[in-house]
């Protein structure tokens, strides 16, 4: 690595991923946005011999990079794709426009795309657990932001789980697939596109009761009947 930029970045290697992360201080708000995958760029068709350093050298020409997630195989060569995020979320637009040609100039034939940033999973056919148990079990697997329970038939539920970002959703997806036992043999899991479900459109439907968490904690008995509820 060249000295002029390596000092500002820290390289991590965790299992199948090489991370190059900025050492710049960042605000909590900024971090949260970035961690939930804001401005993520997907790099693909990376040659085996390309190193994260090659990519960084080009990428930092545009702006400060927040993080590069570079996927590698067991002999530490590229698996062909990587994810890139700039500290400044708005840089993405510019990057999508010019980065590919910048790469080409650097003799790297890498394609640049906007990342889908899938972070929701759709779950069905959990037969022996009730929704709250599912809620709990999922928490054991990986932290997530929100669980939607949809009773699509009496006593049959479908679930949509929202994770913080694609990375965490991927981990959860793998765990779900490999540990099917927890949710029963018939479990059905797939990825959901963000625009395919967005119940956020009308924030709180009128039939839905909002239970407040701090209340839940001390309130022992919840009022007898809410048709739908959230907390």
């Amino acid at each position: 690595m060249e000295p002029h930029w390596t000092n500002n970045y820290c390289k991590h290697h965790v299992n199948g991923t090489l991370y190059v992360i900025t050492c710049l201080p960042m605000t909590a708000v900024q971090l949260m946005a970035l961690e939930s995958g804001a401005g993520e760029i997907f790099l693909t068709r990376i040659k085996k011999q390309t190193t994260p350093e090659d990519i960084m050298r080009v990428a930092i020409q545009l702006d400060d990079v927040y993080m590069l997630r570079f996927k590698i195989d067991f002999s530490f060569r590229s698996r062909g794709y990587a994810y890139l995020q700039y500290v400044n979320v708005d840089t993405m637009e510019r990057a999508l426009a010019v980065l590919q040609s910048l790469f080409r100039q650097a003799k790297l034939k890498i394609q640049v795309r906007q990342s889908n940033n899938l972070k929701s999973l759709f779950l069905k056919d959990v037969n022996h657990l009730n929704p709250l148990q599912v809620y709990e079990e999922l928490r054991l697997i990986w932290r997530y932001d929100k669980l939607y329970v949809l009773e699509y038939k009496p006593l049959q539920y479908a679930y949509i789980i929202e994770y913080r970002n694609n990375y965490e959703a991927t981990i959860a997806f793998n765990v779900l697939k490999s540990q099917m036992g927890i949710f029963g043999n018939n479990l059905f899991v797939i990825w959901v596109n963000k625009d395919e479900h967005s119940p956020v459109s009308h924030p709180v439907p009128n039939c839905c009761a909002v239970l407040l968490r701090y209340q839940l904690n001390w309130m022992n008995i919840i009022q007898p009947y809410y048709p739908c509820f959230m907390f």
Partner: peptide, 18 residues
């Protein structure tokens, strides 16, 4: 793990430039 102290065994690998 993964900062000053790292680990590298077959099923687990976590090290960084620090």
């Amino acid at each position: 793990v993964g900062n000053t102290v790292g680990i590298q065994v077959p099923k687990l690998c976590n090290i960084s430039s620090r």
